[in-house]
């Protein structure tokens, strides 16, 4: 019935397909739960249609969290990938890769909860950052970083940039190293400055680096939860509230599993919005 080759492929693929299918079954169950009336410790799976979504869309907190999530994605993804590229270029062109990699990868190795706790201490009114600013006669820059609702979100976004920079650097380092060295040599012979080389040779050649880094970073920012939980619980007020934390509070503190699943489904839908274009571009490249 099947050719030998096809059967062999099937044998190799079967286990992984099975494992992956479990994930999709779980997603399906979550989506079903989001349309159920499960709102207590007691599991209850009566179908109620889109009622939970209507309730969610009429809750102003949902829009606050969504807005914060979008700000987080934009302000995190852009700087992290651009800084990652610049530092990776400096790293490769100076040849001091070991030192750079150690310095920038260390934050990535720290868990988000530990990083969150550390940064809350540093951000405190009398914490390391303000003390340092005052010592440098820059006291006018000192701020209550996470006590002030107008800057708390940005303070937390900065922590995630600090954490993920090493990850972006590694991706771009690999991308830069994949460029044919003769291109750079040719540019050097033509008398291009290192900035020109960076801008005209490196940047166009590392597009696939962006293709890997940007969606992954966007997804990390979309599902952000741990640092918010550890550092602010979405506070002051709802200034740093995000969908991930909103979902957790709804599902596990309020015991509104159905409403929590509805938020999860929306996070899933947004992540599809990020992943599908990425997948289309990637597929087009590979099957060209």
């Amino acid at each position: 019935m099947f050719s030998d080759e096809f059967r062999e492929k099937l044998i190799f693929l079967a286990p992984i397909l099975f494992v992956i299918s479990i994930l999709y079954v779980m997603i399906g169950i979550s989506i079903y739960v989001s349309m159920s009336d499960w709102r207590s410790y007691q599991i209850s799976l009566n179908f109620v249609g889109l009622r939970n979504y209507e309730a969610l869309f009429s809750n102003p907190r949902f829009y606050t969290a969504l807005k914060n999530n979008i700000i987080w994605i934009i302000l995190f993804m852009g700087p992290t990938s651009i800084l990652g590229l610049v530092i990776a270029y400096i790293m490769v062109s100076t040849g001091k890769e070991m030192i750079f990699r150690t310095i920038f990868l260390l934050p990535t190795a720290i868990s988000m909860t530990v990083a969150g706790t550390l940064w809350v201490w540093m951000y405190a009114e009398n914490g390391a950052i303000n003390t340092l600013l005052k010592a440098l006669n820059l006291g006018f820059l000192a701020r209550p970083w996470i006590s002030d609702p107008s800057i708390a979100l940005y303070a937390l976004i900065f922590v995630t940039i600090w954490q993920y920079l090493g990850f972006a650097i590694i991706i771009f380092e690999a991308a830069i190293k994949g460029i044919d060295p003769s291109l750079i040599e040719a540019a050097q012979i033509d008398g291009a400055s290192s900035f020109q080389i960076f801008w005209d040779v490196i940047v166009p050649q590392v597009r696939h680096g962006f293709l890997v880094a940007v969606p992954l970073l966007a997804l990390s920012a979309l599902k952000i939860f741990d640092i918010v939980y550890v550092a602010t619980r979405g506070g002051p007020g709802l200034a740093t509230d995000v969908l991930g934390y909103f979902m957790w509070e709804t599902a596990f503190w309020q015991r509104f599993m159905a409403d929590g699943a509805a938020i999860a489904t929306i996070i899933f839908a947004i992540s599809l919005g990020i992943v599908i274009p990425y997948a289309l571009i990637a597929l087009r490249r590979w099957f060209r």
């Binding site: 979405g234 007020g237 200034a239 509230d241 503190w253 309020q254 509104f256």
Partner: peptide, 21 residues
Amino acid sequence: KEAFVTEMHNILTSLVTSATA
């Protein structure tokens, strides 16, 4: 009920935040 108390946490901290501002 914890579902209500949880909402109160957010309402009250938001109140304090806006009054402080």
